[in-house]
């Protein structure tokens, strides 16, 4: 009965996620559009403008992967869950045999699943249309991306747990989104950042993620320190998020 309920709940949440369009448009389509714009600019494809001879477009693929992950976990989870709490959706679930905890599970599953699809789509489009090779160490890349998803989903959950209203969650999530994607090099790749800024960025979840993904792109296993940092963020975010989460 309860697995059936969880299945139902996840299917329903997925329907709502797709119906809402914000997640699919910004999480799935927008990064591909960005990639396509970059891919059509000589500045991004000409190695002469690249970093160490690597065209900027290739530098940007791991950055866009981080962008996708941040978009899904920081701009959908916090407003959805905090909104559910504010509107009494979670409270109503508390009166049923199933309870509201499974909504968290469903949301996290949807976010992770969508992130996987979005990253695969991004790598596919980059490969097929813009001649960007797939990551040389594909397994390492996938593992790192999953670590990054867990770290960011944990942060999203933490924001949802701490924010008093859906609006507040939206605001905090957006600010975090800009700060963290900046640290991932969306506006200025880490390799081009001044040393201090780069060190600071590398300590953030997406800064660490983008560096680890770049290593995997070039065919190396990411440094254990970076993976450990991501795992640490994931554990802290998820554990604290679940413990602090209020249903009402």
């Amino acid at each position: 009965m309860s697995t059936e309920a969880l299945r139902r709940l996840t299917a329903t949440e997925l329907t709502l996620f797709l119906r809402d369009k914000v997640g699919p448009v910004f999480g799935l389509a927008f990064p591909v559009v960005l990639l396509s714009v970059f891919g059509n600019l000589d500045f991004f494809t000409d190695p002469a403008h690249g970093i160490d001879g690597v065209p900027l477009l290739r530098v940007y693929v791991p950055i866009l992967v981080c962008f996708v992950i941040a978009m899904l976990s920081l701009n959908t989870i916090p407003p959805t869950l905090a909104g559910y709490r504010e509107q009494g959706v979670l409270r109503r679930l508390r009166t049923t045999p199933v309870g509201p905890a499974r909504v968290l599970v469903a949301q996290l599953a949807i976010c992770t699943g969508t992130a996987v699809v979005a990253v695969a789509l991004l790598l596919g489009v980059a490969r097929v249309f813009f001649d960007v090779p797939l990551p040389a160490a594909l397994v390492a890349f996938v593992v790192t991306a999953l670590f990054a998803v867990l770290a960011l989903v944990g942060l999203g959950l933490l924001v949802a747990a701490a924010a008093p209203t859906g609006k507040a969650a939206n605001a905090v999530g957006s600010v975090l989104f800009y700060v963290l994607t900046f640290c991932a090099g969306l506006w200025l790749p880490l390799a081009a950042m001044p040393t201090t800024l780069r060190h600071v960025s590398e300590a953030t979840p997406l800064g660490a993620a983008v560096q680890a993904l770049t290593q995997a792109t070039q065919g190396d296993w990411p440094s254990p320190g970076r993976l450990a940092l991501l795992a640490g963020y994931a554990v802290v975010g998820l554990v604290l998020g679940v413990r602090l989460f209020r249903w009402e």
Binding site: M1, E4, A5, R8, L9, T12, T15, L16, R19, D20, Y84, Q87, G88, V89, R91, R92, T95, T96, P97, V98
Partner: peptide
């Protein structure tokens, strides 16, 4: 919770959830 039905003051549902979907979901509980 299996035997007690509760109608709460001011509890909403997700805006985009349809009536039939809400009932199908809740009956699975």
């Amino acid at each position: 919770t299996q035997q007690l039905g509760v109608q709460l003051q001011d509890a909403r549902l997700p805006e985009r959830l349809r009536v039939d979907e809400a009932l199908d979901l809740y009956r699975s509980f």
